[in-house]
């Protein structure tokens, strides 16, 4: 479904990603792990078309989307829920969700809002509230809900557990597992290794701009080199 080949990317003169190969197949949950600053968000934003890659290729459903603009990537159903949520603080919860279907699935907007409320009942209670007044956890739910409104074919979740309390982190991973159980392909980009591997089918570990390790999530969980490379033990 998603094929990333030899992706090189960065900012200005600085190359952050130095040749990334990565695949996500239909219905799969794939975790991308790595500590702060290894280029996880750079990877996402190049896939989503926010930045143009320096080199390499990105294909989605067999179509080359390398360097395509965000609207055309969203229109294909490749949706990113970004780090830091990036919800619209001056719009109500309902309006935020409605804009999730700005380009895609507009016809089934009402039905999908109900679907999002079934997953995140808390959002329904806050429906008329301005998104900027929500708590951190609720904002994260709204960001994921907004992503789901587009009926994604592949959902990229960038650090959904960032800045949440331990209890909320656990709740968030349960919810992601529930969304994945509906058959949606998910690229889960996280720092939270153990919990990510628990819900992922496969995982990649990025280190110093390249894939240092990859394999089945269950295998990686027990891999001593993961601890070594990731935690620096």
């Amino acid at each position: 479904m998603l094929e990333v080949r030899g992706l090189r990317a960065g900012y200005g003169q600085i190359e952050v990603l130095r040749g990334i190969d990565l695949d996500v197949r239909g219905g799969e949950v794939v975790a991308v792990l790595g500590s702060n600053g290894v280029g996880k968000s750079t990877l996402n934003n190049n896939i989503s078309g926010i930045y143009r890659p320096f080199g390499g290729a990105i294909r989605f459903d067999g179509t080359d989307i390398t360097g395509a603009r965000p609207p055309s990537i969203v229109a294909r159903g490749l949706i990113q829920v970004p780090e830091g949520r990036r919800i619209f603080p001056n719009l109500s919860v309902r309006e935020n969700l409605e804009l999730g279907s700005y380009l895609r699935a507009r016809a089934s907007r009402a039905k999908n809002i109900e679907h999002v409320f079934a997953i995140f009942p808390r959002l329904q209670e806050r429906i008329g509230q301005l998104a900027g007044t929500l708590s951190g956890g609720e904002q994260q739910m709204l960001a994921i809900g907004r992503g789901l409104m587009a009926e994604p074919r592949l959902l990229i979740l960038d650090e959904p557990s960032l800045g949440l309390s331990p209890i909320l982190v656990e709740e968030m991973f349960k919810l992601i597992a529930r969304i994945a159980a509906e058959g949606l392909a998910i690229l889960l980009v996280e720092q939270n290794v153990v919990q990510s591997l628990a819900i992922a089918d496969r995982a990649y570990v990025i280190e110093k701009g390249v894939i240092a390790l990859s394999g089945k999530a269950a295998d990686l969980l027990n891999d001593p080199t993961l601890k070594a490379s990731y935690l620096g033990l």
């Binding site: 609207p71 990036r86 603080p89 804009l99």
Partner: peptide, 13 residues
């Protein structure tokens, strides 16, 4: 007006 990056990611030009 308030969140350009978020707008790009929902497909707003």
């Amino acid at each position: 007006a308030k969140e350009r990056q978020g707008a790009r990611l929902v497909g707003i030009d």
